[in-house]
Simulated assay, not measured.
Amino acid sequence: MHLGIDLGGTKIEIIVLDNTNQVQHRKRIASPRDSYQQTLSALVDLVEDAEDKVGQRCSVGVGIPGSLSPSTGLVQNANSTWLIGHPLKQDLENCLQREIKIANDADCFTLSEACDG
């Protein structure tokens, strides 16, 4: 199963899709604005809760309102300013003990529209 997270300035939404792209779990919460640590904790809690609901460990992808610096791995150019300068990918990987894919949310949306309509 595949788990996707849309991390935004006002909300965080998580969805779990099975191999036929059927929704198995979905949840939306308010973003903990202005707190990187609370945002990180919320992401970890959402992933753990979703995996408990579907009964298995999933691959994890996160769309963020910014990008990761190729040279430092730190979040840059995010309109959710409390993310800027933090190693979100590394921190999530450490907390969840697996590789995490992170991409710009607009790029994720464009790819989804191209593939899924």
Rank of each mutant, 00 (worst) to 15 (best):
V75L: 00
L83N: 00
E99A: 11
P87G: 01
G73C: 01
L68G: 07
S80N: 08
Q90V: 09
V62R: 08
R98K: 15
N77G: 02
D91H: 14
S69W: 04
I100G: 14
G85R: 08
S80I: 09
V62E: 03
L92V: 06
T72K: 04
G66S: 13
V62P: 02
P65K: 08
L96F: 08
Q97W: 11
P87K: 02
G73M: 00
Q90A: 09
E99V: 10
G61Q: 13
P70M: 09
E99I: 08
S71T: 15
G63Q: 06
G85W: 13
S71M: 12
Q76H: 11
S69L: 00
V60R: 05
V75W: 01
W82A: 09
H86T: 06
W82G: 00
G73F: 01
K89G: 13
I84R: 03
G63E: 06
Q76M: 15
C95L: 12
T81F: 02
T81M: 00
Q97V: 11
H86M: 07
W82D: 08
R98D: 08
N79E: 09
V75I: 10
P70N: 12
N79G: 11
I64V: 09
C95D: 10
R98A: 10
Q90Y: 01
N94P: 03
K89Q: 15
I84M: 06
G61A: 15
T72C: 04
L88T: 12
K89S: 13
V60M: 07
S67I: 07
L68R: 05
S71G: 10
P70C: 12
L74F: 06
G85H: 13
N79H: 14
N77D: 12
G66R: 01
A78Y: 04
H86A: 01
V60S: 04
N77M: 03
P87I: 07
G63D: 05
G61L: 14
G73S: 05
I64A: 00
T72L: 07
Q90T: 15
P70I: 13
C95Y: 12
N94H: 14
V75H: 00
K89A: 15
Q76D: 14
L83S: 02
G63Y: 04
W82E: 02
S80L: 13
N94E: 13
